[in-house]
């Protein structure tokens, strides 16, 4: 990887380094998903029974929230490509807002489970449910931090139509967080 590669990472949007990170993260989640699926194959009844206790409405609502947030980030990238840093900032702020809604819904869900006495040691299904969603939860927080950093720089006029690698970098990471949830939701909440 040389400096020239930064601008020509095979065209990948944003900084090439974030993509190495994204691929590594996807690998971690992929391994986690398959571990869930194959453990389930050995414990079908336990998984099916435990899955009924999940709050599917909260899960679906969070999917909608994250998708919308991702869409807002797309708008933010479009805005900065049109050299409109102000609008870019507004879209980013909306995306962060949606990310925060996700966190609130998720915390409500966690609270519901914890008050029902469910923990990592309850059974294998809840171990996976809590581990996967908590691990993803941490990624949402990290994504929000990254978007916030991009927002601050956008506000101070750090990006333009000619130079907005940072916006694309943050956007790519955020879409990854969304992407992972798109698989997590049907896998853990829906199919049985």
């Amino acid at each position: 990887m040389t400096t020239s590669r930064k601008h020509d990472a095979g065209g990948l949007p944003g900084d090439f380094a974030i993509w190495i990170f994204i691929f590594a993260e996807l690998l971690v989640f992929g391994v986690f998903f398959l571990a869930y699926a194959f453990s389930r194959a050995n414990n079908v009844e336990l998984f099916n029974e435990s899955q009924l206790h999940l709050n599917r409405i909260a899960g679906a609502a969070n999917t909608v929230v994250l998708l919308t947030s991702s869409y807002f980030v797309v708008r933010a990238v479009a805005a900065i490509r049109a050299d409109n840093a102000r609008r870019c900032g507004h879209w980013l702020l909306s995306a962060i807002g949606m990310g925060s809604v996700f966190l609130v819904i998720k915390m409500f869900e966690f609270g519901e489970k914890f008050s029902a006495g469910i923990s990592l040691s309850t059974n294998t299904f809840f171990m996976f449910y809590l581990s996967l969603t908590f691990f993803h939860f941490m990624h949402v927080i990290l994504g929000i931090v990254i978007l916030a950093a991009v927002l601050l720089k956008a506000r101070s006029g750090g990006y333009s139509a000619a130079n907005h690698t940072g916006v694309e970098t943050g956007a790519s990471y955020w879409h990854m967080v969304d992407l992972v949830w798109l698989i997590l939701f049907p896998l853990v909440y829906v199919i049985h």
Binding site: R56, I57, G59, A60, T63, V64, L67, T68, S70, Y71, V74, R75, V77, A78, A79, R81, A82, D83, A161, F185, P186, Y189, V190, I191
Partner: peptide, 30 residues
């Protein structure tokens, strides 16, 4: 900069994704 070529398909994609999420949720509920 041309912004509609980026935004318009994305808006459509977003709506499709929301609809499919609703469908997935419905399958789960049923």
């Amino acid at each position: 900069m041309t912004k509609t070529p980026l935004i318009r398909p994305c808006t459509l994609v977003w709506l499709i994704l929301l609809a499919l999420t609703g469908l997935t949720w419905f399958i789960g509920e049923s």
